[in-house]
Design a protein around this nucleic acid. Structure first.
Lengths: 208, 208
DNA sequence: TGTACATCAGTGAACGCGCGTTCACTGATGTAC
DNA sequence: TGTACATCAGTGAACGCGCGTTCACTGATGTAC
């Protein structure tokens, strides 16, 4: 791939720009994902990007999408690691793994986490145009909903408790993440932080 | 106060600048609280502010403090409105009022809410220097902790559940606020949103 | 009561920065004949 | 197989913007004598 003399036509410029934006987001959060810096990092003039994105916002959306996908990937990986036989205990472990993965991601990759939520297309809104390939992959919300559905199927959770449960679960992990990543709890010692996360997840698990 | 010819010395410039910043924050969030706009709104040259703040950051901190105080005020007002005799039910209603007030504030004043958390001094960190007058007033965290303490005193909540309970409660309301104010749920219809809030608060109440 | 003077609280012009965006352009590529 | 030409994907210079911050300054105020 890496040639000594880069050809005039890059060939994968869009992907390269998004990747560069992703790196910038990881290091410094959403505000660092600016057109000029992204072009600079890709080694391309700063308006080449306009061949692939209509806008700065358009680029930021693409980067945010990738951050969101990264979060979903971690959640799926953590769910796949669950090694429990008993169906009910398994369902419980999976929901918990999803919640923990959410917070784990936020703490391990604050820049990506903040970028993922910096400029998301609104949930449930009709997507702008055709984007079937990546829309097919389940996002964090779908993963959580699926896990809760399984908890009901398996008898772990009462069916009448199911509607709206995802909002409660999502809120706790999102709140924990925000408070620890960029909120007033960001300086809490790691041990105390882990304890707080455990307690919060317990409370929700008990409430559901 | 309002004289036709403003005297050269403003007299209350610091307060006036913070007030202008507060208005800007209310309308357009933390990013709108910039030195020049604040000075402009106050009718003063854009570096007069340097007589009262060392920095742009310093000004933003002062505005954020005021936003946080506004949030705490609403919480206190909502708690004061609770009209329940029975001690246990009262404690429960107060905790709930605090949680609801938090989300209510975020939804009614998204700009102030975001500003309050845009650049908060870290919780538990030793405050920069001498600021005894406003440090005396209880912040949102203190109000919540107090309400939970009362729930234990009154026998509503088991004492062994108390440690860390504020993290769980805070996380839910903060998560709800973030998801609805600037997160992926910001376009949820109001009715569904209220329902989601109720359910999430129920879940936590049951879990505690 | 008057006055010199230090100090405080503003002003106005200017600097440099990085940004998004637009313009006219050039180099590379694909395709119809 | 060759060639004209439309189209695509980059370049480089420039514009205008608003910002934070600094500089030398001036007007107002308080205080020692």
């Amino acid at each position: 791939m890496q040639r000594t003399t880069r050809p005039y036509h890059h060939g994968q410029l869009r992907e390269a720009l998004v990747a560069a934006g992703f790196d910038l987001a990881r290091k410094s959060g959403p505000d660092a994902v600016v057109l000029r810096a992204v072009s600079r990092a890709t080694g391309v003039s700063h308006n080449a990007a306009y061949r692939h994105f209509v806008d700065h916002q358009d680029l930021l959306n693409a980067v945010a999408d990738r951050c969101m996908r990264e979060l979903a990937d971690l959640m799926q990986r953590r769910v796949a690691e669950v090694r429990v036989r008993d169906a009910q205990r398994r369902a419980r472990a999976e929901v918990r793994a999803i919640g923990r993965a959410y917070v784990e991601f936020a703490l391990a990759e604050p820049g990506l986490f903040r970028t993922a939520f910096a400029c998301v297309p609104v949930e449930g809104d009709d997507l702008p145009v055709d984007r079937p390939p990546e829309a097919a992959q389940p996002g964090p919300y779908e993963l959580l909903s699926g896990a809760l559905d399984r908890a009901v199927e398996v008898g772990l959770m009462a069916a009448e408790r199911r509607p709206g449960a995802e909002y409660a679960a999502w809120s706790v992990v999102h709140g924990l993440s925000m408070l620890f990543v960029e909120g007033p709890l960001r300086a809490l010692p790691a041990a105390e932080r882990e304890h707080a996360i455990d307690i919060a997840l317990d409370v929700v698990a008990r409430g559901l």
